[in-house]
Design a protein around this nucleic acid. Sequence first.
RNA 1: GUGACCGUAGCUCAGUUUGGUAGAGCCCCGCGUUGUGGUCGCGGUGGUCGCGGGUUCAAGUCCCGUCGGUCACC
Length: 371
Amino acid sequence: MTIPGFVVEATDGSARAGRLWTSRHQVDTPVFMPVGTRASVRTVTSADLEALGAGIILANTYHLMLRPGEEVVAALGGIHGFAGWHRLVLTDSGGYQIFSLEPRVDDDGATFKSTYDGSIHHLGPERAVDIQLTLGADLQMVLDVCPPATAPRQVIAEAVDRTAAWAVRGRRAFLARRDDFAGERAQLGIVQGGVHPDLRRWSAEATLDVGFDAYAVGGLSVGESRAEMIEPLGVTTELLPPDRPRYFMGLGDPAGLVEAIAAGVDMFDCVWPTRMARHGTALTHEGRLNVAAGRYASDDETLDPGFPASPAGRWSRGYIRHLLSVGEPAGARIVTLHNLAWMFDLMARIRQAIVAGSFDRLRREVLEIWA
RNA sequence: GUGACCGUAGCUCAGUUUGGUAGAGCCCCGCGUUGUGGUCGCGGUGGUCGCGGGUUCAAGUCCCGUCGGUCACC
């Protein structure tokens, strides 16, 4: 599966290739990845995502490793066969979820209790590689440590150190084992450091020294304000190689996207659009629309009249609000499809604007509404 | 016609025994959600307690009357 490559004109006028790191792993840049749990986004299927034009999905390693377990997924054709998704899959290491469970962490990894049955599990840098290879991910993430950006500097500094040490071990394990598995595989390193420019610089250099197929910005958009994010993000992207894609983990609101893209980021994933949808908020060209609100009960307008191509275009706000208000699952599904399509459309407009040289104007328009 | 029970927020109800500044859930409104911990979290608006009278320092609560509803019996 190949997605057409793309030449990105950076906002400073310099051009760089948007093609990724292997012949197989080409994606448009910038792209937004819907996040999948148990192989698909909660309320939609791989067929829906394909119809919406998604090129990559992010699959949730934490859940898959515990239930049904990576061997079961492998036996059913890997994540692609298992989920019926035949485009690219990126897996997270599972670390982010596990750290939310307050695990016992030492230099060798994290020990945690399964939220399914309370059983004890351990995840270290080598095991994270094995799981993701076994799942069949095209792109996988190295295990890292991601504290809240608001954590004390000392905590972030320790996270940077441990992330760097795990990067060495994770990369070694990946290079040793990837050829045992079919298909082309790639591994991404992660830069931590919170909002501290010096820590981010240090983390970026350590990660680049290890040498990954591509690089991710971690440890941002985890509690800090938008303004606090800009400088440390710029410090990070400046140091990353221009011919490799940059992936900002966990960012997905429109204002954050245009700021990060302006800083040179190419790939994103985020629960924000789908969580918004399930909680009754639709994305529109005029901003958020809380379609679950009572004032839309008799509204016969579509969710976003400015987006006629929406997959929710045949239904009125009143009908969708009715489905949401009675707890009918179709309501969440319809808004999720709309929001994902809206995000993909935004990204397509951004790509076009970059090529046309009008990205700065689009960025200002987006910030005007969403900042 | 007689009797019992009921009448408190937009809705469903608690509070009445033992009088002491009127509550909950839902609805509604606002805010939040960022490498998925679940249709979720936080905050807010809203009631002269059916009506009238009485007792009392003080009544949603006790007493009398009245209106409305439900049920049973005639």
